[in-house]
Amino acid sequence: MKKSSPTFILSYCVFLIVVGITGCSEKSAEETRPPLKSPAYLEEATPEPVVVSEKTRETYQWYCAQCHGIQGKGDGINAKFLTVPPRNHTKAKYLETRTDKQFFEAIKFGGLSVGRAPCMPAWGNTMSDSTIHELVRYIRELCQCEAL
């Protein structure tokens, strides 16, 4: 049987060490993994502090108040005709258990998208993402509550 040459054995050991260091450590795996990309609307969800403009307050009155009421108390002119009462935006107890992301998605994609009432339509083709972010902030103003 032919014996392996010392040069070959040495090279093999070096190869194993290199693979052991670079290939198996968690750190290097993370470095080589492509970064996870979240959708654009989520990336925009955590930038500068959102300021609620006068225009967005008017947007709430124009669209949202039909069901949620002028003061956001869930008593709009449609409220008593809906199978599920519109959310009272002044009640912190429930709203502080919901994240800003959940608010955003409920407005943009509709109530069903977040497992809530289908009475709430999707407003994503009517309002820009930045207006929806401001509306989320406005609801936080109304409920005097915060969440992630």
Partner: peptide
């Protein structure tokens, strides 16, 4: 249905009024 009245399958009026 949230904003428009319509008829359900039994012919009853249902829906919002805005």
């Amino acid at each position: 249905i949230s904003c428009h009245q319509s008829l359900n399958l039994a012919g009853k009026v249902r829906g919002g009024i805005s």
